[in-house]
């Protein structure tokens, strides 16, 4: 294991740590889960780091790993808790501030209305990813991403804002 690899991994994390936290916040319902999920994603990124495909944008690659880990994480709390490696090790420190908690609660309530896959799509859209990038992460065509995103927005406006 070279120091060079470690340095590259650290640089990747430092560049894309926001994705990890955004995905973790969107797929977990308490701080403890969020912490566990960030750790799971970090471990999965480290394990997959050797197989990084340079043809893929780094953010797309990070999103794929993060989303796959988060969706699997959400699946079974009991299984996850049973086999989770208990540790205090955190490669990424928690944010120094918690932000607007009321806003986060509102966002979580909104996200809960979406199934896991629509949620994944909406998280990436809200993060400013273009349709082509979202399409690369999920493997559906970019035009369909556009259609779905607008339907999700319609659905949320109707169900969440009664508009």
């Amino acid at each position: 294991m070279s120091n060079e690899k470690e340095a590259r991994f650290e640089s990747l994390l430092s560049q894309h740590k926001g994705i990890l936290y955004k995905v973790a916040r969107s797929y977990s319902y308490c701080l403890e889960d969020q912490r566990d999920l960030v750790q799971d994603i970090t471990l999965q990124l480290w394990r997959s780091f050797d197989s990084y495909d340079p043809d893929l944008k780094l953010s797309t690659w990070v999103y794929r790993v993060a989303m796959n880990t988060a969706i699997s994480f959400l699946r079974s709390d009991s299984i996850r808790k049973k086999y989770h490696i208990t540790t205090d090790v955190m490669l990424i420190d928690e944010p120094q501030e918690n932000g607007n908690e009321e806003l986060m609660l509102e966002i979580q309530r909104m996200l809960q209305r979406l199934n896991k896959f629509d949620r994944a799509m909406f998280i990436m859209y809200s993060d400013g990813l273009d349709y082509a990038a979202i399409s690369d992460v999920l493997k559906i065509s970019a035009s369909n991403v556009g259609t779905r995103v607008s339907r999700i927005k319609q659905q949320l406006n109707k169900e969440f804002f009664n508009r």
Binding site: S48, R64, V65, N68, F117, A120, V137, L138, K139, I140
Partner: peptide, 10 residues
């Protein structure tokens, strides 16, 4: 492989 597209992996 978690680096593959989400729909395939899931």
């Amino acid at each position: 492989d978690y680096t593959k597209p989400v729909l395939d992996v899931q």
